[in-house]
């Protein structure tokens, strides 16, 4: 099975309204060299078993990708903020030290996937708990030759190339870790673009939680809201959840509802927390 991502480039025809003496700057077309796919988007390592993450070049040209480890912390609203290594706490330092992975640099022709192998090697005296780093996959832009035609005779032009990529959490569970979770204050609020479903999840313990949030009306088979892949990391005791609603969804959000936060189906689908609530 294969699929192709076809790209058509319309040249940035630079119609420079030439200033009296300013030269015309011809920019090279924007080739999306380095577009990428990463799967899975979350890895849990427990025990010494390793795993693989697939990186695929879905761009139109050969590209080189660099694979690295970074740190992120989750804010109350669910956003992940980067943390410099110099600001790492002891748990983050331990996480950086125990992840082994290879290769760290991959050159792939278009359409070609490759596996990155990874494993955790926790030290013998590592305290029980959950340790996390974020693995980044980034395309390295090809060095571009500066030609004479790129240089305007007068004036300043700027070429700013993005180095772009995907990061995924790598979670190491050492020993027995648990979390206690509750769903609080479900409500409908007015967001910037319309009605939103809002609630908060409170969490205690050493473990993160990850799963599916569903809102169901009694008697309905299908949930009126389904949010897959909702994570609450151990650095948070409370996470806010906001989901934009379509008008059709919003109309159903009144009266009695059951809100459930369950593990992902492939992790067993066990109930993490649930609440029956009256909205509207």
């Amino acid at each position: 099975m294969s699929f192709k991502t076809l790209r058509k480039f319309v040249k940035h025809s630079v119609a420079v309204a030439a200033l009296s003496s300013a030269a015309i700057v011809a920019h090279s077309p924007a080739h999306a060299q380095g577009d990428l796919l990463v799967a899975p988007t979350r890895v849990i390592l427990d025990g010494s078993r390793g795993t693989e993450v697939i990186l695929s070049n879905i761009g139109s040209e050969e590209a080189t990708y660099r694979i690295g480890l970074e740190l992120r912390r989750m804010l109350e609203n669910g956003r992940l903020v980067p943390v410099e290594r110099t600001d790492a706490n002891s748990s983050e330092e331990a996480a950086l030290g125990m992840i082994r992975y290879a290769p760290r640099r991959i050159t792939l022709p278009p359409g070609q996937p490759q596996a990155v192998r990874l494993a955790a090697r926790p030290g013998a005296d590592l305290a029980d708990g959950e340790y996390r780093v974020h693995m980044s996959f980034k395309a390295i832009p090809r060095p571009r030759e500066v030609t004479a035609s790129d240089q305007p005779a007068e004036g300043v032009s700027i070429q700013l190339i993005p180095i772009y990529g995907v990061t995924i959490p790598i979670i190491v569970r050492q020993g027995r870790v648990e979390a206690q979770v509750a769903i609080n204050q479900p409500s409908i609020v007015q967001g910037e673009t319309g009605p939103e479903f809002a609630m908060s999840i409170s969490r205690a313990g050493d473990s993160s939680t990850y799963g599916v949030l569903s809102v169901t009306r009694p008697g309905d088979d299908e949930p009126i809201l389904l949010l897959r892949g909702l994570a609450v990391y151990p650095e948070l005791n409370e996470r806010q959840v906001r989901v934009r609603l379509t008008p059709e969804q919003a109309a159903k959000f009144n009266g009695q509802v059951r809100i459930e936060y369950r593990e992902m189906p492939d992790a067993g689908g066990g109930l993490i927390a649930a609440v029956d609530s009256f909205l509207g």
């Binding site: 991502t5 940035h12 420079v16 200033l19 300013a22 700057v25 920019h27 077309p29 924007a30 080739h31 999306a32 380095g34 577009d35 990428l36 796919l37 990463v38 799967a39 899975p40 988007t41 979350r42 697939i54 879905i58 761009g59 305007p152 007068e154 004036g155 300043v156 032009s157 700027i158 070429q159 700013l160 190339i161 993005p162 772009y164 990529g165 995907v166 995924i168 892949g229």
Partner: peptide
């Protein structure tokens, strides 16, 4: 079935045009 995350750079680089300073 694996969840995947894809990032495409459709719009090229950040380009400020030409400036006479």
């Amino acid at each position: 079935i694996l969840d995947a995350l894809v990032l495409n750079n459709d719009g090229g680089s950040l380009d400020f045009g030409t400036m006479v300073v």
